[in-house]
Nucleic acid binder design. Structure first.
Length: 420
RNA sequence: GGAGAGGUGUCUGAGUGGUUGAAAGAGCCAGUCUCGAAAACUGGAAUAGUCGCAAGGCUAUCGAGGGUUCGAAUCCCUCCCUCUCCGCCA
């Protein structure tokens, strides 16, 4: 959510951002409602001031033993009017809030303007793609090796909920530990979080109201199964104010993630490419506004480092305005090369939200410079999402005789070097 | 799940209808004193909205949301959370 005052004072910049992100422009309606709102506040508060003044007088009169009936009678009409105004104000503010939620965050100037994924810029590529000859997609390999059981997963839970069996299960556990250890070395505090959250938290990171269909919901208890650790970890500091010197704060959290993926079918969903439940290590930062773009670069570097250590070829995309999402000001996607499918798979998405989330969640810091409280900037990025990494490892490291070599850095964790 | 107690500012903690945005103490910031510090003394300090060029004014906020009243931290209702005891349990 943006700041009303910011919209009022930077109307044109906000409008430009809306166009670039191809969102609906409700700015005129917002400004009109804001005017109404302020008129109502003006009248209402004037009357409240009067009420407070007269009430104090009534108290004094009663103390002095005088009769205050006439004044009280007069206040009754004021009271009614105040109630009316408050009701009108409430309805205006409800409409206003609704529209405010439709205003996207303003893209950073360094972000390329564009409409579709084709306008994203590939800004960096690393590693050598294995030659494609004779390489199989991971689902063929895992089924031959019997290490991922999609069928039994369907029986037990449903499509998109596989079992990892034996060495695949150990490989996953190894990756989680490897990712968390790396994050720890790079200054992130490890956090083990709830994997369900309440309504306030779901609202805080913006999953509701607009993305409610993306989540599994335990309706009986009004709990939402998290689609990413970003939700509990960012909400960790909801409604808190930091000292400036505490910033930046960095967390790494491993959680299972649950996504309904309603309406997404087709060939993209084969094997491990798209699941309803998957594991992910998420990196989250709370930082001083002056450093947030440097922090975005280092966040990206932290995620890239993992891919380099694993020896997986990848590329970095700088997302264009039209494809970057509603809440971000700037976003990089990291895509790993899956040689068996001859395809790039997104494994991390590193974003700066500036104050967009912090405002919604009321996360501030006390500025030394101004003496005031200001909103922090929040960032997050995957570090990394597991299934597609597993897919890439299997496809890129497959041997002609159908085995899979485990990357060197993982072997201390897996305690085996080959999956066979 | 049953029974009880409670949620007040950074913290401890007073306050049960009328100058209470809120006592007191601690902590914090600034100043005086000091070579410096401590102690002592003096002063300052909430957040948001709104009006104003500004100084400053006004409004709201005592877990959250409603209600009663001329007036609510104080009374009523709903919800949330914490603690204690009992039961159940990985």
């Amino acid at each position: 959510m943006l700041d009303l005052k910011f919209i009022r004072e930077n109307t044109e910049a906000v409008r430009k951002g809306i166009q670039q992100k191809r969102a609906d422009d409700n700015i005129d309606a917002i400004l009109a409602l804001d005017n109404q709102r302020r008129t109502l506040i003006g009248e209402g508060e004037g009357l409240k001031a009067k009420r407070n003044e007269v009430s104090a007088k009534v108290g004094q009169m009663k103390k002095a033993g005088e009769n205050a009936d006439a004044v009280i009678e007069e206040m009754n009409t004021v009271k009614t009017r105040i109630q009316q105004l408050d009701e009108e104000l409430k309805s205006v503010e409800e409409k206003l809030d609704e529209l405010m939620l439709t205003v996207p965050n303003v893209p950073h100037p360094s972000v390329p303007v564009g409409a579709t994924p084709d306008d994203n810029q590939s800004i960096f590529e690393w590693g050598e793609k294995p030659s494609a000859a004779g390489l199989k997609p991971h689902w063929d390999i895992t089924s031959a090796l019997g290490i991922i059981d999609f069928d039994r997963g369907s029986k037990v839970a449903g499509a998109g909920f596989p079992f990892y069996v034996g060495k695949a299960a150990i490989l996953q556990r190894a990756l989680i530990n490897f990712f968390l250890d790396q994050a720890g070395e790079r200054g992130y505090t490890e956090l083990q979080a709830p994997i369900v959250v309440n309504k306030d938290s779901a609202r805080g990171t913006g999953q509701i109201p607009d993305k409610e269909d993306m989540m599994y919901v335990a309706t009986k208890d009004e709990l939402y199964m998290i689609p990413t650790a970003e939700v509990p970890v960012t909400n960790f500091h909801r409604k808190e104010t930091f000292e400036e010197k505490e910033l930046p704060i960095r967390y790494a959290g491993y959680t299972p993630c649950f996504r309904r993926e309603a309406g997404s079918y087709g060939k993209d969903v084969r094997g491990l490419n798209r699941l309803h439940q998957f594991d992910k290590v998420e990196l989250v930062k709370f930082v001083h506004p002056s450093t947030s773009y440097d922090e975005l670069e280092s966040l990206r570097a932290d995620a890239e480092n993992l891919l380099q250590l694993l020896g997986l070829p990848y590329r970095v995309l700088l997302m264009c305005t039209g494809d970057m999402g509603f809440t971000q000001t700037k976003k990089y996607d990291l895509e790993v090369w899956a040689a068996g499918q001859q395809k790039w798979l997104e494994v991390s998405s590193c974003s700066n939200f500036e104050t967009f989330q912090a405002r919604r969640m009321n996360i501030k810091f006390k500025s030394k410079e101004t003496g005031k409280q200001e909103f922090v900037h929040t960032l997050n990025g995957s570090g990394l999402a597991l299934p597609r990494i597993v897919a890439a490892i299997i496809e890129n490291n497959q041997t002609p005789d159908g085995k899979v070599n485990v990357p060197k850095v993982l072997q201390p964790y897996t305690r085996f070097a080959v999956i066979e």
